[in-house]
Nucleic acid binder design. Sequence first.
DNA 1: AAAATAACTTGCATAATGCAAATAAATAGT
DNA 2: ACTATTTATTTGCATTATGCAAGTTATTTT
Lengths: 161, 161
Amino acid sequence: MTNKRELFQIMTRRFGLLNKNCCSVGGHDLSAAQSHILYEIDRAEAPSMQQVAESLGTDITTFSRQIQSLVKMELIEKSPSPADRRVSLLSLTTTGKFVAATIDTQMNGYLDEVFSYLTPFERETVLRSIDLLNGAMAKSDRCCAPIRDDQAEDTTPNDPE
Amino acid sequence: MTNKRELFQIMTRRFGLLNKNCCSVGGHDLSAAQSHILYEIDRAEAPSMQQVAESLGTDITTFSRQIQSLVKMELIEKSPSPADRRVSLLSLTTTGKFVAATIDTQMNGYLDEVFSYLTPFERETVLRSIDLLNGAMAKSDRCCAPIRDDQAEDTTPNDPE
DNA sequence: AAAATAACTTGCATAATGCAAATAAATAGT
DNA sequence: ACTATTTATTTGCATTATGCAAGTTATTTT
């Protein structure tokens, strides 16, 4: 209660568990990482590989392979950008959209159950708080953004851009 | 804003990034998983392997190896339980305690920075909300607890025990 | 048009994962 | 007391994930 870190440690652990083998839809069994990828592609407008890898904080080579397997699963399509043929634009296939929507429903179901233990007022408050928190994290540059290098206690003001 | 899942997706992603290469202390470079293990051992009173593995939702064989490497790093000690010699009780070494404390400080530092973008009232609200959320997740059995098997839509009542 | 840069992919080499089987200690059944 | 079962943890693979260095193809610089 007193300690911020304690609260967040517990929370992230629980969410980690929730996400563990996050979603099986039909025959497909997706990992949390894969679900995040689908989510992000759905959200953005035909993003490039780099864009998605960057916003998920995944190494581009790892991401390349993650995409390869999602393409093989026929959830994602890659098409060369007309503007720059080095770039691959990502989009969800029809199946991919369906899977993404189903996961969304599932997750909302889980969350509804969790929220059922709260009063309507508490629900409201919690949702608003998460929103505030997301906003605050977005503003922070010390954390929560893709970190390139070490962030040792010495706090060298390195700027990786 | 409207969609619970959306809020939580963003939040978990950001925390994932924050935790990524979560903590380097002195020469030690810890993963998020390792930091969670230290945290849990510090928190509990000489827990057994199974207890910690269970509460972290980690497969016991994977956990066994994670512990092996933390022992090799001299952050953790294993001692056979006097009551039952099959059981290994886990504890932090002096170095382990120091590392755990340092990580705690680091994380609180990050969180302080994030919270600096909120008003004092918002901070209060957010902390209280996380606490509420943790409580609600603890009550839920559909999620957030170690999940043994699939939770497909078909909901076959299989019992793997 | 050659040189530098950029977006992505592939080659390793390493680390993490988890099921099945092994080991070792405790408990049950007789 | 003595074998049989269960329990706690470890090891043997076999699979998958990771990321750096180097490669490929396309674009931009000069």
